[in-house]
Amino acid sequence: MDSRRDFLQKLGLSSIVLPFVPLSGWAESLIEPETYDGPVLRVAIMGLGGYGSRVADAMQSCVKAKLVGVISGTPSKIKNWQDKYAIPEKNCYNYQNFDQIKDNPDIDAVYVITPNALHHDQVIRVAKAGKHVICEKPMAISPKEGQEMIDACKKANVKLLVGYRMHFEPKTLEVIRMRNAGEFGKVMFFQGQCGFKIGDPTQWRLNKQLAGGGSMMDIGIYAINGSRYMIGEEPMWVTAQETKTNPQIFKEGVDETIQFQMGFPGGAVASYLSSYNINYLDRFFLSGEKGFAEMQPSTGYGPIKGRTHKGELTQPHTTHQTVQMEEMAGIILEGKEPIVPVNGEEGLKDLKIIEAIYLAAKTGKKIPLKL
């Protein structure tokens, strides 16, 4: 891992352990430049699709993380990325030969951004090559696969992180700070709505074999994860109901719309909607005995907007993937601890909940959760 000197710190977020400062201090901490002179995480991106491109572009503003390699099954994409990001030929791999990264000292970590069903095998191969892994969410298509990925990374003594970008988003972290400080009082209710009308019916997200499901695996997971970090507890049970209006597009095993409910040990109840057939769903609402928080949009690429009983959330917008990669570099290189975990165990909890939601929708029963 090398160093890059004389770069301005464009993002004032300190590595992972973000200070709980007043609102006025957030703006200053985010925009005040400082010189960074330290280790840099050298990353190869696996999967050069739309989101991979978004991450790559965002990383151009990073000082602690640098894009140095690519892994793809499409030679033309590799060539385009080489030209755009000045990636050397020796750091380019395909899906058959990327195990050879074990002999490449210029790559520290691989960010796996491929269809959900491919994560399991690809993450394990990266771990066996001795490289740290960042895996896009959902980390796998079943809890069994997720556990095997965690075990493989532990055996190889490499870190496994999951791409939960919202765990570093300033307005989200302010709501968590307020909750921790007791400013909402006892939390009584959470509502999470995540969804949109999906486009191309031939895309992999509507293929059960590649996606592992439908809207729940792609967008509903945001609401699940959001309730956990906003309430600050793990759910105890789940009930669910599925609605399917277009079985031609949403075939067997690919959920179109699911409404589900969860209960938490402190007494809070939560209501959720996950859909691939309803637009304008990107809202979180938290209600406590002393106050509330509402975020809309709550998980989009930004800017996130929110308000509480104390007024509008005013933390400045920063590109989510830039902050995410800066903070993940701090976790991997410096052992930083994030306010909200992004490790494999965090990803596994969401997979266990999703599995229970599918079971509840299928059986009509209330399913207990043990996370």
Results as ranks from 00 to 15, higher is better:
Met139Ala: 08
Tyr164Cys: 04
Glu136Met: 03
Tyr164Pro: 01
Asp200Thr: 11
Lys159Thr: 13
Lys186Ala: 12
Glu148Leu: 04
Phe168Cys: 10
Ser142His: 10
Gln191Ala: 11
Ile150Cys: 05
Arg179Phe: 02
Arg177Gln: 15
Cys194Arg: 14
Ile141Ala: 02
Phe190Met: 05
Met178Leu: 14
Phe184Asn: 00
Lys159Tyr: 06
Gly185Asn: 09
Arg177Phe: 05
Gly185Leu: 09
Gly163Val: 04
Lys197Asn: 13
Ala152Pro: 02
Gly185Cys: 10
Lys171Pro: 00
Leu173Ser: 04
Val175Asn: 05
Cys153Phe: 10
Arg177Cys: 03
Met178Asn: 07
Gln147His: 07
Gly195Lys: 06
Ile141Gly: 01
Met139Cys: 10
Arg179Trp: 04
Gln191His: 08
Asp151Arg: 04
Ile176Trp: 10
Glu136His: 07
His167Cys: 15
Glu145Gly: 00
Phe196His: 14
Leu173Pro: 02
Gly199Tyr: 02
Gly195Phe: 01
Ile176Thr: 11
Lys155Cys: 02
Val175Phe: 08
Ile150Asn: 02
Met139Asp: 06
Gly146Glu: 08
Cys135Pro: 03
Gly195Ser: 07
Lys186Glu: 15
Asn157Gln: 15
Cys153Gln: 11
Lys137Asn: 05
Lys154Thr: 08
Phe184His: 04
Pro138Thr: 15
Met149Asp: 03
Gln193Trp: 07
Leu160Pro: 03
Phe190Leu: 06
Gly146Met: 06
Val187Asn: 01
Gly163Thr: 02
Ala152Ser: 09
Lys137Asp: 06
Arg177Lys: 15
Leu173Gln: 14
Met149Arg: 05
Thr172Val: 14
Val187Lys: 00
Gly182Tyr: 10
Lys137Tyr: 12
Lys186Asp: 14
Gly182Leu: 09
Ala181Gly: 07
Thr172Ser: 12
Ser142Thr: 15
Phe190Asn: 03
Ser142Asp: 12
Lys186Gln: 14
Ile141Lys: 01
Met139Arg: 11
Gln193Val: 01
Cys135Trp: 06
Pro170Ser: 08
Tyr164Lys: 00
Thr172Ala: 13
Gln193Ser: 10
Ala156Asp: 07
Thr172Pro: 01
Arg165Cys: 13
Gly146Thr: 05
Gly195Asn: 06
Glu145Phe: 00
Glu136Cys: 03
Ile198Thr: 14
Pro170Asp: 06
Glu169Ala: 07
Ala152Trp: 06
Leu161Pro: 00
Val175Arg: 05
Gly182Asn: 11
Gln193Cys: 04
Pro143Arg: 07
Lys154Tyr: 10
Met178Gly: 01
Lys155Arg: 12
Phe190Ser: 01
Ile198Arg: 04
Val162Ile: 14
Phe184Ala: 06
Lys154Gly: 10
Glu136Ser: 13
Ile198Gln: 05
Cys153Glu: 09
Ala152Ile: 01
Gly146Lys: 06
Met139Val: 04
Gln191Glu: 14
Gly199His: 10
Lys144Pro: 03
Pro138Val: 15
Val158Gly: 00
Pro170Tyr: 05
Glu145Asp: 14
Gly182Asp: 09
Gln147Asn: 08
Lys197Trp: 01
Cys194Gln: 14
His167Thr: 13
Lys186Val: 08
Glu183Lys: 14
